[in-house]
Design a binder for these strands. Structure first.
Lengths: 179, 179
DNA sequence: ACATAAATAGACCGGTAGTCTAAATCCCGA
DNA sequence: TCGGGATTTAGACTACCGGTCTATTTATGT
């Protein structure tokens, strides 16, 4: 905190007048940076007529957009990394995380309506693990991007989408599942 | 650290003589507690003759065993929770985490050998997201166990195993995948 | 113009992980 | 058994952290 304040030439008094603590400052910063993608889970009206294939295509483009935003906004990416790694950050941003999971939940509900997403597990569980999966895949690519050519990365990234998809599919569409 | 030392009636000098810093103390503690399950990824010789179904059954019993160990050893569960939540703990235990991912990797390699696990994505990626998925599912159950009856929990837990399985299956076994 | 309220700077506080010194203890050859 | 160098130990001390408190400045309404 002291370093942040020194870098920004801000005083403690002023800062703590507007933010209760370090966590709220982090939360407010993240919320601002997140503004451009607060509508990521919006589902267009024509979705009613969709089939499962169209749903997955749509979800793919949502993921592409989020990935692109994170690639372009390094500071947002850094905030998200901190959010993932620091318990204190998660506590401070609990409401934002809830909203994010709710947004994913509404996407998945739309997917269930068109038969693309399984309905045999609690929606909250599916939302939670989807978020974790997105983060995990994204983090792996962030760590290993250096060792990959652009072509390889694009190819892998396309195939990695099936990692997100697979756990969401209705279980009867998996061949050779367990008793 | 001061609280830990006071609770254990240990002095600073003695402790810092044997452990470089707080992180190493944590790492050493975790490593000890982890000893009983260091062999979790062992694959018996008869695996050569397995089919995919037997592989998944075997993986299911590995998961069951790990879950049972974590339920019985609350202190290990607590260490694992800290490891998941604290960036500093992850840094201190980087080698243990690597070993864990390597263990998962060797399990998955066995799965690939019998055609149960996809081979179209880097093994390291599959290992990493599998670990994250296990942690995510486990955490969801830990948070929501209170609202579930024992029967519901057992039933859900059995079905939740498909969440781990699904992203590992060869993509051709998913119906209706994306172009 | 004055009184009251809001905003601001920065000294200060309790608590943290980690260091340093000096004393105690161990170990081994004479 | 003694002596002296090396190892081990206790705990005072340091640097730094997030957060509070007070005194001063600045804004606002009458």
């Amino acid at each position: 905190m002291n370093r942040i304040l020194a870098d920004a030439s801000e005083s403690k008094g002023r800062t703590y007048h507007y933010f209760a603590d370090k966590g709220e400052l982090f939360r407010a910063t993240l919320e601002r940076r997140l503004e451009p993608i607060t509508d990521f889970h919006a589902i267009p009206d024509e979705a009613r007529g969709w089939g499962a294939g169209e749903f997955w295509a749509r979800l793919g483009s949502v993921c592409d957009r989020l990935t692109r935003v994170l690639q372009d906004d390094m500071q947002l990416a850094s905030l998200m990394r901190t959010l993932h790694e620091e318990r204190a950050a998660q506590a401070a941003c609990a409401d934002l995380l809830d909203a994010l999971r709710k947004g994913i939940g509404s996407l998945l509900t739309a997917g269930q309506a068109v038969g693309a997403v399984r309905g045999d597990l609690p929606l909250a569980l599916l939302s939670a693990i989807t978020l974790d999966l997105v983060v995990a895949v994204d983090r792996w690519f962030a760590l290993n991007a250096a060792t990959l050519s652009a072509d390889e990365e694009a190819d892998l990234s396309r195939r990695a989408f099936t990692l997100l998809m697979a756990p969401l599919l209705p279980p009867h569409s998996l061949k050779g599942s367990l008793p």
